[in-house]
Simulated scan of single mutants.
Amino acid sequence: MTFSIVARCARTGMFGVAVSSSSPAVAARCAYARAGVGAVASQNVTDPTLGPRMLDLMELGASAPQAIEALRGSTEFLDYRQVLAVDAHGRSAIHSGAKALGIFADAKAENVACGGNMLADAGIPAAMVESFTKSEGHLGDRLLAAMRAALALGGEQGPVHSAGLRLVDKVSWPVADLRVDWTEDCPIAGLSALWDLYRPQLEAYVTRALDPSAAPSYGVPGDP
């Protein structure tokens, strides 16, 4: 019931996850990233513990493929799960269990991994990888372009209702954590509009956290 992308920007080292689903609030359960460590999507009959476990393993020095293998050797019910990961060196890895739902597929390349279940077309993850690898610019823009490539091939078999985008970069908190938790319209279009609004302010929000004296004007009524 989900399709997603995890990726690393080779130029900046930023990590990101974008995800969409017919289920509500998908990003709250499926998107995980840690600055300097990696990004993970845990989906399909989701076990929310798998994302943090993968990031902990990679922070301890495991590559993304090694972390996936560690899960396979230690995790019950993994046949029901999909887990996508990319690490700090751009190595990517995927587990798609044999009991994933409907048409499921995955694809990966350096710095990116994509996967989905209940898909309208098994070629969707490969199209997402191709979109990401051929694109340039901010990681958030590239992730959303990959999500739109998934939609162009049909996305899920049924309508999607939620989507999310999480980005991490240098600080201990997400520099962007944007969500459309439920809509009857296209959540990826809604997420793209939210990103267009948020992106110009992203660095300012980081500056306000680190050094308010150096922060730009807040631009709200009452701000001198």
Rank of each mutant, 00 (worst) to 15 (best):
A150Y: 02
L139M: 10
Y198P: 05
A146G: 10
P216S: 09
M118F: 13
L60C: 04
A28P: 00
E136H: 14
D223V: 08
V6C: 13
N111I: 05
T183M: 09
L197I: 06
G219H: 11
D223A: 15
P200D: 06
D56F: 03
F77H: 11
E184A: 12
V206R: 15
R81D: 10
S213A: 12
D181R: 08
L57D: 04
C9W: 01
V171W: 10
P24E: 01
A105I: 13
A39T: 04
A163H: 07
R34D: 14
A122L: 07
L197K: 14
D196G: 09
L167G: 12
L178E: 07
F132I: 03
R72Q: 12
L165T: 03
K134A: 15
L84C: 13
S92G: 12
G61Y: 08
G164Y: 09
M54K: 04
V26N: 00
A214N: 10
V6M: 10
S135P: 07
D196Q: 14
V6Q: 10
A25Q: 01
A39M: 01
M147C: 13
R53P: 02
A193I: 03
L165W: 09
R8K: 07
V220L: 15
A152W: 03
G190S: 13
A120S: 15
A31R: 00
P125D: 08
R179E: 12
L167F: 08
V175L: 08
A98N: 07
L78W: 11
R34I: 01
Y218N: 10
A28Y: 02
G97W: 12
D87T: 08
D106P: 02
S172N: 12
D177F: 06
S162D: 12
D56A: 15
G164V: 07
K99N: 13
D141H: 10
W173C: 10
F3I: 03
S42R: 07
G90D: 12
S131F: 02
D79L: 06
E156H: 08
P24I: 05
S131M: 05
N44W: 05
L194H: 03
K134D: 13
L101R: 14
A209Y: 08
V180C: 12
K170W: 07
L84W: 08
G155V: 06
A120Y: 09
G154E: 11
T207G: 05
G164E: 11
I94P: 09
P200M: 10
I5D: 01
P65R: 02
A67R: 02
G155F: 11
F3D: 00
L84K: 12
V112P: 06
N111H: 15
L194F: 04
F3Y: 15
P65E: 03
G38N: 01
A145Y: 03
C186V: 05
S217A: 15
A215L: 07
P216A: 13
H161C: 13
A109M: 04
L57C: 03
T207D: 11
R53K: 15
